[in-house]
Design a binder for these strands. Structure first.
Lengths: 331, 331
DNA sequence: CTAGCCGATGTTATCGGTAACAAGTTTGAC
DNA sequence: GTCAAACTTGTTACCGATAACATCGGCTAG
């Protein structure tokens, strides 16, 4: 029998008009403390929860945020799942609903804003057509607001750790992709190497463990003990780990490995990966928060004009020392 | 300037009342073909999309489905991400929005129904408190409607393959969990073994690759060549694979491995796992479909009385032969 | 002492749909 | 030929919340 509790119910119970109740919720400064107390009491007693649909309708909004995932579904890395949890958490707390879409069905139905993940350069042609505020997950060269982890700092951490651990040859295994995040990771490596007067070396692959493994096995004779492989993803790192094991190298004594991402894969590896962990959940929440700010500040378009202020939030990743680099007993 | 196109706009453009337009959408049989044509034309020209919020409000519904994920977030397997994509796909097509929640915040905000994944036995105490239709992902002994893959058939496939491939000792590595899915997988193994007059052997672990790896290494002397390890998850299978490799066993010549799930992990392994692949996306869509059926049939409660008809949908998994069992060159 | 203003609350109209009912038209039976 | 059932379409009210406007009382200034 538990009917839905409406503003009206609360209003009656508190002996005020429903407008007053609405104000207590949205513009509390306009209501006397006395009435506020009454209303709060009534709301608690009745266990009032606002009706999303009505709110949305009255505000000419949808209260729906679209989360666009631009990855082949069969590849959906746990990464995005974690990000999604972060987004969802914030959205739930602020009474927004979610619509998870891929590019194909991105345009069905209205929404108040977009969160876009995994955008590659060629996606921006359609992204700029969107008519609602957009926040991207990931650095980009297209002047879109974004949240990302500080990729350069990440490889600064991992490269620095490799150096401190005393490996004397440090090779970077990158992802063969002309995307900002990869550039930043490579730059973090390069800068750190140069600052230490070490000779950098970068090799790139598709982001698959089999490719990096193959590479290690094929070039095994080139690697002298005391080499560390700084990888641009945990996937590549896992491949390296397997390759070294296959060839009989000693991890971490003779060969070190650091990954990047710190979601799921690093734990699946054995020995567990030393990796640069991104605070993915927190980033998800932040993206949602930024988008909501934009929406609430009356930004209703998707304006990318260069003269406007661009919001960029960088999260500092963290080096997780585990068993593929030396002195993991420290930390 | 592109204002929102409403029912009213369409109505005016087609020279009918908005009720007629509404009927064309929801009860087309009540409208003459002639008018239907007019209305369709107007809808197309104006690019009409119904307003979810208004629909929801009028129907005293929310048009929101909660997807409850009962797993520690740091473990979120790619599994659930894939399932979510399936759910999302169906929901989008039918104009429902999604709310992704964990147990902690499951109760904030209204919704029209729940999809619950990863429910363990002790979750049912609060699940039965829910006041809206529920569909579970996963077999259960609590008389809830569910969708699952046919776990028993899955291990029938993998065990059968192991037998056909000529392995003469076949050991089942299961997950130490008193849950239906695990029982079914073990039963599929047991039945198949007995039918073939083979001696079954089951060992159980927590679902972590390190545990199965440890087991293989610790008991390595007990395993004679020509043994196949039928695993209850790809995680366990990966551990077995690593253990065998570490101990110098030959895969798949002397030792076979089959996994279970076929999401992500099976591809990360090297050699790639022979596994029982679940059609996870399709299952996700199906769950959403069942839930919507329930909602539209006016089921507004979460009735679990034993005398009502229970809906169970089982999807047949598929054996993917890859490189951890013999004759992978066939297929 | 009173006009005028401000701050606190209530009233009305509205968002975009849909159910329930009303009205108009056709059909069919006697 | 008449009347009622059946069918088609329009009208009204309402879902729950909010913005805009109306109202009321108290306070201040002249």
């Amino acid at each position: 029998m538990s009917q839905i509790v409406t503003l009206n119910d609360v209003a009656k119970s508190a002996n005020v008009s429903k407008m007053t109740v609405s104000r207590v919720i949205n513009h509390p400064e306009q209501v006397t403390d006395e009435l506020k107390q009454l209303v709060f009491k009534a709301m608690n007693e009745l266990d009032y929860h606002p009706n999303l649909a009505a709110k949305a309708l009255a505000a000419n909004a949808t209260r729906i945020i679209k989360l666009v995932i631009l990855e082949k579904v069969d590849t959906v890395e746990p990464y995005y799942a974690t990000l999604l949890m972060g987004v969802a958490q914030f959205l739930n707390a602020h009474q927004y609903a979610l619509q998870v879409v891929t590019q194909k069905n991105a345009d069905i139905g209205e929404c108040d804003g977009y969160i876009i993940t995994g955008a590659r350069n060629d996606d921006f042609t359609w992204i700029q057509e969107l008519r609602k505020p957009v926040i991207l997950y990931g650095e980009n060269r297209h002047h879109y607001d974004f949240v990302d982890s500080d990729n350069k700092y990440g490889t600064f951490l991992s490269t620095g750790a490799a150096i401190k651990d005393g490996y004397d040859q440090i090779i970077f295994l990158g992802i063969e992709l002309k995307e900002s995040f990869e550039y930043s990771r490579e730059r973090g490596y390069m800068d750190t190497m140069q600052k230490s007067g070490l000779q950098p070396q970068i090799i790139r692959f598709g982001n698959h463990s089999s490719e990096s493994q193959q590479y290690i096995e094929d070039h095994w004779h080139e690697f002298k003990p005391n080499t560390c492989f700084v990888c641009s993803s945990d996937r590549l790192a896992i491949g390296v780990e397997r390759g070294i094991q296959r060839m009989g190298g000693a991890i971490p004594e003779d060969f070190g490995i650091t990954g990047f991402d710190g979601v799921f894969l690093d734990q699946i590896a054995e020995p567990k990966l030393t990796t640069v962990k991104q605070p993915v959940m927190a980033m998800g929440s932040k993206i949602a928060e930024l988008l909501m700010q934009k929406i609430n500040h009356g930004v209703t378009t998707n304006d990318q004009s260069p003269e406007r202020d661009r919001t960029e939030v960088m999260f500092s990743p963290e080096l997780i020392r585990r068993n593929t680099t030396r002195n993991y007993h420290l930390n």
